[in-house]
Protein backbone atom coordinates (compact mmCIF):
# COMPACT_ATOMS: atom_id res chain seq x y z
CA UNK A 1 0.00 0.00 0.00
CA UNK A 2 1.28 3.42 -0.89
CA UNK A 3 0.42 5.99 1.70
CA UNK A 4 0.18 9.65 0.86
CA UNK A 5 3.64 10.93 1.67
CA UNK A 6 2.43 14.37 2.66
CA UNK A 7 -0.69 16.08 3.78
CA UNK A 8 -2.34 16.83 0.45
CA UNK A 9 -6.07 16.64 0.66
CA UNK A 10 -6.09 15.03 -2.76
CA UNK A 11 -3.25 13.83 -4.95
CA UNK A 12 -3.82 12.68 -8.51
CA UNK A 13 -1.06 11.15 -10.61
CA UNK A 14 -1.28 10.22 -14.29
CA UNK A 15 -5.02 9.74 -14.05
CA UNK A 16 -6.89 8.76 -17.17
CA UNK A 17 -10.03 6.91 -18.17
CA UNK A 18 -10.80 4.84 -21.24
CA UNK A 19 -14.13 4.51 -22.96
CA UNK A 20 -14.53 2.61 -26.22
CA UNK A 21 -10.84 1.71 -25.78
CA UNK A 22 -9.74 5.30 -26.18
CA UNK A 23 -8.66 7.74 -23.56
CA UNK A 24 -11.44 10.16 -22.74
CA UNK A 25 -8.80 12.69 -21.69
CA UNK A 26 -5.03 12.82 -21.59
CA UNK A 27 -3.54 11.86 -18.20
CA UNK A 28 -3.75 14.59 -15.56
CA UNK A 29 -1.78 15.06 -12.35
CA UNK A 30 -2.37 17.58 -9.61
CA UNK A 31 -2.42 18.06 -5.89
CA UNK A 32 -4.92 19.91 -3.82
CA UNK A 33 -4.41 21.35 -0.36
CA UNK A 34 -6.82 22.67 2.20
CA UNK A 35 -8.15 26.10 1.34
CA UNK A 36 -7.56 25.88 -2.39
CA UNK A 37 -9.87 25.99 -5.35
CA UNK A 38 -9.04 24.11 -8.53
CA UNK A 39 -10.80 25.13 -11.70
CA UNK A 40 -10.97 22.52 -14.44
CA UNK A 41 -11.41 24.00 -17.86
CA UNK A 42 -11.65 22.59 -21.35
CA UNK A 43 -13.98 22.41 -24.31
CA UNK A 44 -17.19 20.37 -24.36
CA UNK A 45 -16.56 16.65 -24.31
CA UNK A 46 -13.01 16.86 -23.02
CA UNK A 47 -13.81 14.72 -20.02
CA UNK A 48 -14.40 17.23 -17.21
CA UNK A 49 -17.42 15.40 -15.88
CA UNK A 50 -15.64 12.07 -16.27
CA UNK A 51 -12.74 13.41 -14.22
CA UNK A 52 -15.05 14.53 -11.42
CA UNK A 53 -16.85 11.18 -11.45
CA UNK A 54 -13.49 9.45 -11.19
CA UNK A 55 -12.50 11.63 -8.24
CA UNK A 56 -15.86 10.98 -6.59
CA UNK A 57 -15.34 7.24 -6.95
CA UNK A 58 -18.23 6.55 -9.34
CA UNK A 59 -15.75 5.39 -11.99
CA UNK A 60 -12.58 3.39 -11.62
CA UNK A 61 -9.46 4.81 -13.26
CA UNK A 62 -8.01 3.04 -16.29
CA UNK A 63 -4.56 4.48 -15.55
CA UNK A 64 -3.02 6.39 -12.69
CA UNK A 65 -3.85 6.85 -9.06
CA UNK A 66 -6.11 8.94 -6.87
CA UNK A 67 -5.10 9.39 -3.25
CA UNK A 68 -7.76 11.01 -1.16
CA UNK A 69 -8.10 11.40 2.56
CA UNK A 70 -11.85 11.03 2.65
CA UNK A 71 -14.90 10.71 0.48
CA UNK A 72 -15.58 14.04 -1.26
CA UNK A 73 -18.98 15.61 -1.78
CA UNK A 74 -20.05 15.44 -5.42
CA UNK A 75 -22.65 17.68 -7.00
CA UNK A 76 -23.14 16.57 -10.58
CA UNK A 77 -25.46 17.54 -13.40
CA UNK A 78 -28.37 15.63 -11.91
CA UNK A 79 -29.94 17.46 -8.99
CA UNK A 80 -31.12 14.35 -7.07
CA UNK A 81 -34.47 16.00 -6.44
CA UNK A 82 -37.68 14.00 -6.43
CA UNK A 83 -40.49 15.54 -8.48
CA UNK A 84 -43.12 14.22 -6.09
CA UNK A 85 -41.59 15.61 -2.92
CA UNK A 86 -41.60 19.22 -1.81
CA UNK A 87 -38.35 21.17 -1.52
CA UNK A 88 -38.42 20.75 2.22
CA UNK A 89 -39.12 17.02 2.03
CA UNK A 90 -36.30 16.57 -0.45
CA UNK A 91 -33.78 18.38 1.71
CA UNK A 92 -34.99 16.70 4.87
CA UNK A 93 -34.62 13.26 3.28
CA UNK A 94 -31.03 13.93 2.28
CA UNK A 95 -30.28 15.30 5.74
CA UNK A 96 -31.59 12.13 7.32
CA UNK A 97 -29.93 9.88 4.79
CA UNK A 98 -26.51 11.50 4.71
CA UNK A 99 -26.33 12.91 8.20
CA UNK A 100 -25.80 16.53 9.12
CA UNK A 101 -23.31 18.51 11.10
CA UNK A 102 -25.76 18.97 13.94
CA UNK A 103 -28.22 16.12 13.78
CA UNK A 104 -30.03 17.17 16.96
CA UNK A 105 -31.18 20.44 15.42
CA UNK A 106 -32.42 19.04 12.14
CA UNK A 107 -35.63 21.09 11.97
CA UNK A 108 -33.91 24.39 12.57
CA UNK A 109 -31.07 23.52 10.24
CA UNK A 110 -33.45 22.55 7.46
CA UNK A 111 -35.27 25.87 7.60
CA UNK A 112 -31.99 27.72 7.79
CA UNK A 113 -30.60 25.90 4.74
CA UNK A 114 -33.71 26.62 2.68
CA UNK A 115 -33.48 30.25 3.70
CA UNK A 116 -29.82 30.42 2.71
CA UNK A 117 -30.36 28.96 -0.75
CA UNK A 118 -33.22 31.38 -1.20
CA UNK A 119 -36.01 28.84 -1.67
CA UNK A 120 -38.18 29.78 1.36
CA UNK A 121 -41.07 30.99 -0.85
CA UNK A 122 -41.23 27.64 -2.66
CA UNK A 123 -40.30 25.39 0.29
CA UNK A 124 -43.67 23.60 0.23
CA UNK A 125 -43.87 23.27 -3.55
CA UNK A 126 -43.28 19.95 -5.25
CA UNK A 127 -40.02 19.35 -7.06
CA UNK A 128 -41.74 19.22 -10.44
CA UNK A 129 -42.78 22.88 -10.20
CA UNK A 130 -39.22 24.19 -9.79
CA UNK A 131 -37.37 26.01 -12.53
CA UNK A 132 -33.93 24.84 -13.63
CA UNK A 133 -32.26 27.50 -11.51
CA UNK A 134 -34.34 26.61 -8.45
CA UNK A 135 -33.44 22.97 -8.93
CA UNK A 136 -29.79 23.90 -9.03
CA UNK A 137 -30.15 25.87 -5.81
CA UNK A 138 -31.96 22.98 -4.18
CA UNK A 139 -29.22 20.54 -5.17
CA UNK A 140 -26.61 22.92 -3.76
CA UNK A 141 -28.32 22.72 -0.35
CA UNK A 142 -26.13 19.71 0.38
CA UNK A 143 -23.12 22.00 0.55
CA UNK A 144 -24.68 23.59 3.60
CA UNK A 145 -25.49 20.58 5.72
CA UNK A 146 -22.85 18.00 4.81
CA UNK A 147 -19.45 18.26 6.40
CA UNK A 148 -17.17 16.84 3.68
CA UNK A 149 -14.11 19.00 3.30
CA UNK A 150 -13.54 18.34 -0.39
CA UNK A 151 -16.23 19.45 -2.81
CA UNK A 152 -16.50 18.35 -6.43
CA UNK A 153 -18.82 20.70 -8.26
CA UNK A 154 -19.73 20.03 -11.88
CA UNK A 155 -20.69 23.28 -13.65
CA UNK A 156 -22.10 24.75 -10.43
CA UNK A 157 -22.93 28.12 -12.03
CA UNK A 158 -25.07 26.79 -14.83
CA UNK A 159 -28.70 27.96 -14.68
CA UNK A 160 -28.04 30.23 -11.70
CA UNK A 161 -29.08 33.90 -11.77
CA UNK A 162 -26.66 36.64 -10.56
CA UNK A 163 -28.00 36.38 -6.99
CA UNK A 164 -27.55 32.63 -7.14
CA UNK A 165 -23.99 33.00 -8.33
CA UNK A 166 -23.25 35.45 -5.52
CA UNK A 167 -24.83 33.01 -3.06
CA UNK A 168 -22.68 30.13 -4.29
CA UNK A 169 -19.55 32.30 -4.21
CA UNK A 170 -20.19 33.25 -0.60
CA UNK A 171 -20.85 29.62 0.42
CA UNK A 172 -17.64 28.66 -1.33
CA UNK A 173 -15.62 31.40 0.37
CA UNK A 174 -16.78 30.29 3.80
CA UNK A 175 -15.89 26.71 2.93
CA UNK A 176 -12.41 27.57 1.70
CA UNK A 177 -11.54 29.82 4.63
CA UNK A 178 -12.64 27.14 7.07
CA UNK A 179 -10.09 24.71 5.64
CA UNK A 180 -12.11 23.06 2.88
CA UNK A 181 -11.14 22.62 -0.74
CA UNK A 182 -13.04 22.54 -3.98
CA UNK A 183 -12.66 21.27 -7.52
CA UNK A 184 -14.99 22.87 -10.00
CA UNK A 185 -15.49 22.39 -13.71
CA UNK A 186 -16.48 25.06 -16.16
CA UNK A 187 -16.58 25.18 -19.93
CA UNK A 188 -15.46 28.77 -19.80
CA UNK A 189 -18.35 31.20 -19.90
CA UNK A 190 -18.88 31.36 -16.13
CA UNK A 191 -15.89 31.48 -13.85
CA UNK A 192 -15.67 32.06 -10.12
CA UNK A 193 -14.76 35.67 -9.44
CA UNK A 194 -12.47 36.92 -6.70
CA UNK A 195 -10.87 33.61 -5.80
CA UNK A 196 -7.27 32.61 -5.57
CA UNK A 197 -7.41 29.61 -7.84
CA UNK A 198 -5.38 26.96 -9.61
CA UNK A 199 -6.38 25.93 -13.08
CA UNK A 200 -6.15 22.62 -14.88
CA UNK A 201 -6.82 22.60 -18.58
CA UNK A 202 -7.94 19.27 -19.96
CA UNK A 203 -7.28 17.85 -23.39
CA UNK A 204 -9.58 15.18 -24.74
CA UNK A 205 -8.07 11.91 -25.91
CA UNK A 206 -9.59 12.40 -29.33
CA UNK A 207 -8.00 15.83 -29.74
CA UNK A 208 -4.61 14.32 -29.11
CA UNK A 209 -5.20 11.55 -31.61
CA UNK A 210 -6.16 14.19 -34.15
CA UNK A 211 -3.00 16.13 -33.30
CA UNK A 212 -0.83 13.05 -33.80
CA UNK A 213 -2.35 12.27 -37.14
CA UNK A 214 -1.80 15.79 -38.45
Amino acid sequence: MDLPNNSHMLAVTGLSFERYFERVFEPVSFELDAGSLLLITGSNGCGKTTLLRLLAGLLDPSEGKIQKEEQPLYAGHFPAIKDDLSVEENIRFWMKFMGTRKSDQMDGLCEQVIEEIGLTPVAQQEGRTLSAGQRKRCSLARLLFCDESLWLLDEPYSNLDPQGIAMLDSILKTHLTSGGACIMTTHGSLRPEGFDLQECHMISGRERYAGEAA
Binding site: A56, G57, L58, Q71, L73, Y74, G76, H77, F78, P79, A80, I81, K82, D83, W94, F97, M98, S139, R142
Partner: peptide
Protein backbone atom coordinates in the same frame (compact mmCIF):
# COMPACT_ATOMS: atom_id res chain seq x y z
CA UNK B 1 -35.17 3.99 -12.84
CA UNK B 2 -36.30 7.32 -11.42
CA UNK B 3 -33.55 7.32 -8.78
CA UNK B 4 -31.05 6.57 -11.52
CA UNK B 5 -32.28 9.25 -13.88
CA UNK B 6 -32.49 12.14 -11.42
CA UNK B 7 -29.10 11.51 -9.82
CA UNK B 8 -30.43 10.21 -6.51
CA UNK B 9 -28.75 6.87 -6.98
CA UNK B 10 -25.27 8.31 -7.51
CA UNK B 11 -25.65 10.41 -4.37
CA UNK B 12 -26.71 7.32 -2.45
CA UNK B 13 -23.71 5.37 -3.74
CA UNK B 14 -21.40 8.18 -2.63
CA UNK B 15 -23.07 8.62 0.76
CA UNK B 16 -20.88 5.90 2.26
CA UNK B 17 -23.90 3.80 3.19
Amino acid sequence: RSDFEDGTLEQMVLSGQ
